[in-house]
Design a protein around this nucleic acid. Sequence first.
DNA 1: GTTGATCTTGTAGCCATCGTGAAGGAAAGC
DNA 2: GCTTTCCTTCACGATGGCTACAAGATCAAC
Lengths: 224, 224
Amino acid sequence: MRILVVDDDAQIIRAMRINMRARGYDVDTAFDGASALQAAAKHPPDVVLLDLGLPDMEGGEVIEGLRAWTSVPIIVLSARHSASEKVRSLDAGADDYVTKPFGMDELMARIRAAQRRSMHVEEAPVVTTAAFTVDLGAKRVTRGDEEVRLTPTEWHILEVLARNAGRLISQRQLLHEVWGPNYQSETNYLRVYMAQLRRKLEPDPAHPLYLITEAGMGYRFEKG
Amino acid sequence: MRILVVDDDAQIIRAMRINMRARGYDVDTAFDGASALQAAAKHPPDVVLLDLGLPDMEGGEVIEGLRAWTSVPIIVLSARHSASEKVRSLDAGADDYVTKPFGMDELMARIRAAQRRSMHVEEAPVVTTAAFTVDLGAKRVTRGDEEVRLTPTEWHILEVLARNAGRLISQRQLLHEVWGPNYQSETNYLRVYMAQLRRKLEPDPAHPLYLITEAGMGYRFEKG
DNA sequence: GTTGATCTTGTAGCCATCGTGAAGGAAAGC
DNA sequence: GCTTTCCTTCACGATGGCTACAAGATCAAC
């Protein structure tokens, strides 16, 4: 479960991070609206905790920016008790509005409630090519009618490439994302796994149409 | 839009009725838990406003009584500010918790937010396969003509998987949902319970058709 | 044509994960 | 208080994914 904490106060961010971690959430953080939207796009969170009063954007703008493409639960945290502010945030698309100061237990309960509701609504981005289909929500790959079984590492690589379809992903980027920060030079792992993916997905693995190697630079997922 | 107001104070009921009417809602009312459950069953509302401190039942009981068969948004109204009370209500299945006194504008905004969320929750209350049927509303599983008895934990796991039929659910997700946030690494629980579920549901438990393991990734409920 | 870099493919051992049966102990129901 | 059900925990064997290395293939540059 990934949670995105947006607040311009570094202390609060730190406190939140520790608390959430201890309760088993993965935590992303952002200091302002722009980076919040960016972070959410890069790693779609399961819950967003949004502080009002960010330096660069109105709270309502951030909510709308998220709601434009995702229905992730948004819980607004704010020191302002004014009713009009609450109404504005909730009507903009927030799911809940908690006034500071608040108890961590209550916040966690509200997060659980928000999550429980959104459990069943998740959207399913799907990337399709002429040869196969990658369902990122269901974590499933089908080729024609048959399901293709991928190992965790294979899936992880394919997921990163498919989410960035058309873009070039450097080898370092891939290694960092899949194997972690300590594997930035093991480029032959990539060669091994790209070969396996091609064998499972490409019509002619020797002449790939979709999983393209850019020699010396990285790999690219080509849709058509 | 039908709204059910549950409160033991006749004055509040009257005030609510007038306010809600003015905003275009149909209003049902109930003075205690028993009649609230009855009223909800008779005319399923789109939102429930539930006062705590009813004469006949604990708030949590009312929430559970509703949640047993409906996912209608429940907003708790209470004079108690205690965090533990909030946590209990929210974890019992309430969607929001508003402390008295509250502004009518805020309440209306929260009602709108709760409604908006429940809008796109289109439930498929029954999931059917060739071998068995899972009735998510009635919490029953039948295999052929016979009912299959599941333990609470077994049911909880099956419920999560069935609600997300076709999707892959990671071990962490399942553990978090069923055992809570502190059990994210006890993957052997899952193995034990998946084996039990397969024994009870699969035609050939050694070669499952419906409760599929995706090694290293998670589990998937396959309908066909 | 040769050389060297880069990529593909194959192979083998180690180890993580999975399925399963069984048993101790807690909780619930009578 | 007793019985039954359910949850937790452990041990074992088996499967198969990951790592690592090496040999063959391709390509570009000279």
